[in-house]
């Protein structure tokens, strides 16, 4: 006996909740600027953006794409690392930086292609497919670096272009932030404005309906996972340029926060969809909280606890009034 009469209870969450994350961010800014005098200074804010936010933002943008398509990409960190590894190796081999960057992104595309094959080709759940990729990527890094030793670009021969990617500015704004802006606008246009974004939305929320409307479901998924890994590999290139080295497994540090940011970001949308502005707010919130806690004298360890609690509260906010997830 069908019970469809009984499930009319699904009500949209009150619109008030959409302001939860912006409000939390505002509150964080106000509280910390009162508690820590150095917090609301230009140099601190630029420092937070460059050091805490930029790389996390790029990885989170990649994550948002896959979350919007109804999945997750646990191997974003692997794409970061493989991008970094390919980039640094090519530079050490004496190739120009732009070719190295291209090879780095291609390494990301390769990682994405592997995921796409598993997810779109073999219909494996994204969570487990990308988990497998993560493991294989880990092995790959161990094998190429003799168990996880960093690979340094020799100090004497650092190309100027590499230093520019790592520390340069354009019009007074650090290059990393330009990159974040370009990627964010690009991803936002793709998800929110483009025809492809609509297809992603349909595939992510109602894959069956998408199929029954003639949409190329597999191709959409394949593209999303390739794009996600390619974007993540850009973060890998930035990291390497920053430290003139490839440090194995450094990408995984961004994984959990990027998932957190993408899901915190969904609370910004009336229909709880993954969206780029929300993700960026999530990244900012996490970045400013850890910076603020640092400035008021909490050590790194308590910052972890603080940001964990914060993610928890944000989730609570995002899920309150949501009754259709069970």
């Amino acid at each position: 006996m069908s019970l469809d009469i009984l499930d009319s209870r699904r009500t949209a969450a009150p619109d008030l909740l959409r302001f939860g994350v912006p409000l939390a961010l505002a509150l964080v800014l106000v509280v910390f600027s009162l508690l820590a005098p150095g917090f609301l200074t230009l140099s601190n804010i630029v420092g937070v953006l460059v050091n805490n936010v930029a790389l996390a933002a790029i990885v989170s943008i990649a994550m948002t794409l896959t979350v919007a398509s109804g999945g997750t990409d646990l191997s974003v960190g692997t794409a970061v690392d493989l991008g970094s590894l390919a980039f640094v190796s090519t530079i050490i081999a004496g190739q120009p930086v732009w070719i190295a960057a291209l090879i780095g992104v291609l390494a990301g595309v390769g990682t994405g292609l592997f995921n796409a094959l598993l997810i779109a080709g073999l219909s494996i759940t994204p969570f487990l497919a990308t988990l497998g990729t993560l493991f294989i990527g880990h092995s790959l890094q161990q094998l190429t670096t003799d168990g996880g030793n960093p690979v340094y670009v020799p100090t004497g021969s650092i190309p100027p272009a590499l230093a520019f990617i790592g520390h340069g500015s354009v019009l007074g704004v650090p290059l990393a932030l330009w990159l974040v802006a370009v990627l964010a606008i690009g991803a936002w246009l793709l998800l929110a404005k483009s025809r492809f974004g609509r297809e992603v939305l349909a595939v992510g929320t109602e894959p069956q309906v998408a199929l029954y409307s003639g949409l190329p479901v597999r191709a959409v998924l394949a593209f999303i996972y390739i794009a996600s890994a390619a974007i993540a590999s850009i973060a890998g290139i930035l990291i390497s340029a920053n430290v003139n080295a490839y440090v194995p497994y450094s990408g995984n540090a961004y994984l959990l926060n990027s998932i957190g940011a993408a899901f915190i970001g969904t609370s910004l949308s009336r229909t709880r969809r993954a969206n780029i502005p929300g993700t960026l707010l999530g990244v900012l919130l996490l970045g400013f909280v850890s910076n603020g806690l640092l400035l008021i004298g909490w050590n790194f360890y308590w910052q972890q606890v603080g940001s964990g609690l914060l993610i928890f509260l944000a989730l609570l906010l995002a899920f309150t009034g949501r009754r259709d997830t069970a």
Partner: peptide
């Protein structure tokens, strides 16, 4: 409900799903 209409989407998004070009 599973294959015809996308319940999570709005009217506009549903009606143009097959003719996005």
């Amino acid at each position: 409900r599973a294959q015809g209409v996308a319940l999570a989407l709005g009217m506009r998004e549903n009606m143009t799903l097959a003719s996005l070009p």
